[in-house]
Design a protein around this nucleic acid. Structure first.
Lengths: 337, 337
DNA sequence: AAAAATTACGAAACCGTTTTCGTGTTGAAA
DNA sequence: TTTCAACACGAAAACGGTTTCGTAATTTTT
């Protein structure tokens, strides 16, 4: 109920100046013990708390970091955000999260808004539409306002900044290699449209592994606006080859593939082995449980936050690109007896 | 690179006063067309953007809403957050998200920090530890600073505020009733410790349904610090009764129960039917797919945001408690042929 | 041509802090 | 008793804007 109390209020009430109050509350020895105690007691009684906006204006620091992600209803992104939060919190930063919903326009809006001085730094993962349209001009706004920026996961070479990515090529390679090692000869890839950088990179790893032993490739690009299940189903309707292994670049594709394969009466992994690139929860609960290439979203977030903190401290340091390596988490979907 | 430019810079450069610049940029007719154009051109050229902190201090509004949730790596919470974001964004509010990690201390820290004037309102879901210790004194801080507050999902009667909850009792009732309708006689409940309000409410619904037809109850409280799987397994080791139906208050418990039941060679739903209370993604991918009571997290978020906006506009309105009704989403895990 | 109204702008206060720089009082040293 | 530090505090500037009010200069009205 009590209207918010300010320094000025305290000063007036106690008949001292605002400077005295300010100093007293910050424990300055400039103020006598007596006055200090009186002021502190009064302030506590009325639950005085310095106005953070005034503090920010004064210190020219907001202690807030903006995060722009394509969506939040996505296990990987929440993991990354948790990682970011974890380290940022240690240094008393707060996070302001904006969702681009994979839309270029929303991303532009978010970035324009965040570069108005409300944050001390930005961590962003680029929206699909942005990548597709290849339009990154809004990132100039960040550069113009010279706000520290770290890009993660969905990045672009067109933007100069610190970056954190997972070793998508290596992961794709590992996944494919693993399928080969358990005897797969016709390995299909379920991936995104190629403007999504991470999908493309994983594809590179996949192709690299295949090329080494001259196995044929079989790539299906899934478009998210169309029915995912139907698109994956095509894999099983191909007349020429029948895959005995599937590498899916994300959890949904992989889990859907498992569902479909089972509905076709295929045994996993005997008839067809499946592996997914993901950090998610679904993998543990599919039947059989899904073997995955773990992305380490948490680590990614931590590293992104650290890079940002470094840059805030030193704007002149050279840009850094961190690569988080993946690892293979073997579960039943590739474990032949 | 270019250092941030301020009103004062423009004023000095163009040899006018800051008031003139401010007015010109806000399109005031008080300033002549000529001067206005000149100022606007100059401002655009140098990418001038008013400092948001200064604006906030001046307007005494931050246009930021704080959200405190137990964790973000949780489908339900991300859904709610998306809902909040959706409506808040429409009104040009931004969100600042803080994680309590289910810890009372962290929650206190978050709330203390957010009540320093950095936000115009707060939306929170209470941490488990807070509920367990039954200590809500930190919410007084919110009241003292008279910041609008909306509680969602995990609430407490001890806190006066607007609230949004799902119809947990009704949902628990629906779930249990559904199991009864497909012929289950021994329905077990997998739930949280009883200090978690939502678990307790769902239990109430469960008991209500059982009581109506005098079926026996069989409740297992799962403790999160212990191994979940082992605790659920006990259900199948009970000497006296063997359940033919399981109602789990969340997705993980339900999906784990499915895994365990299958490993025991039970057929789902013939031998044992399973239903979960959740909005999550896992349900679609378990084998068989899990029947659920849908929570409508998105709706919840939207309503929470709307309630908050109402209160910001009118601090005197009576507190409101919205109840989001659930609905039954039947999948294979309860669909006997 | 004098009076009134309009135009176009600047000065200053204000939002809530912190911080630098004085300055009047004391108490101690000379 | 005079001189000088030390002490305890206040005035004012600063952070970056907005806004109210005042006022010269110009234009319109009479």
């Amino acid at each position: 109920m009590s209207r918010k109390i300010t320094l000025k209020d305290i000063a007036k009430e106690l008949d001292v100046s605002t400077s005295t109050v300010s100093k007293a509350l910050r424990g300055s020895s400039e103020i006598s013990q007596k006055t200090r105690d009186k002021i502190i007691a009064f302030a506590n009684y009325y639950h005085y708390k310095p106005n953070s906006t005034a503090l920010k204006l004064q210190s020219q620091k907001t202690m807030v970091i903006g995060i722009v992600v394509p969506e939040i209803v996505h296990h990987f992104f929440t993991k990354v955000i948790s990682g970011i939060e974890k380290v940022l919190n240690k240094y008393h930063y707060n996070v302001m999260i904006c969702l681009s919903n994979e839309s270029l326009n929303k991303e532009i809006l978010n970035i324009n808004m965040l570069t108005d001085g409300s944050v001390d730094g930005l961590i962003v993962s680029i929206a699909k539409e942005t990548l597709e349209k290849n339009d990154f001009s809004h990132f100039n706004e960040i550069k113009n306002n010279d706000i520290p920026l770290v890009l993660f996961d969905r990045i672009s070479d067109k933007i100069e900044s610190d970056k954190v990515i997972v070793d998508d090529i290596g992961g794709g390679y590992k996944a494919t290699k693993h399928l080969m090692e358990i005897g797969c000869k016709n390995i299909a890839l379920l991936t995104t449209p190629s403007h999504v950088t991470v999908g493309l990179e994983r594809e590179k790893g996949y192709l690299k592994a295949l090329k080494e032993v001259k196995l044929p490739s079989n790539i299906i690009h899934i478009h998210e606006n169309k029915n995912i299940k139907e698109q994956i189903e095509k894999l099983f309707n191909q007349s020429n080859v029948y895959p005995d292994g599937i590498f899916a670049v994300n959890e949904i594709y992989a889990a859907t593939a498992i569902k479909i394969a089972r509905s076709k009466g295929l045994k996993i992994p005997e008839d067809i082995a499946i592996i997914g690139f993901t950090d998610g929860l679904i993998s543990k609960f599919t039947e059989p449980a899904l073997t995955t290439i773990a992305q380490h979203g948490l680590t990614m977030g931590e590293q992104a936050a650290e890079l940002l903190l470094y840059r805030i401290k030193d704007k002149e340091r050279p840009f850094e690109k961190k690569v988080i390596s993946t690892n293979l988490k073997i579960r039943k979907s590739t474990q032949k007896k």
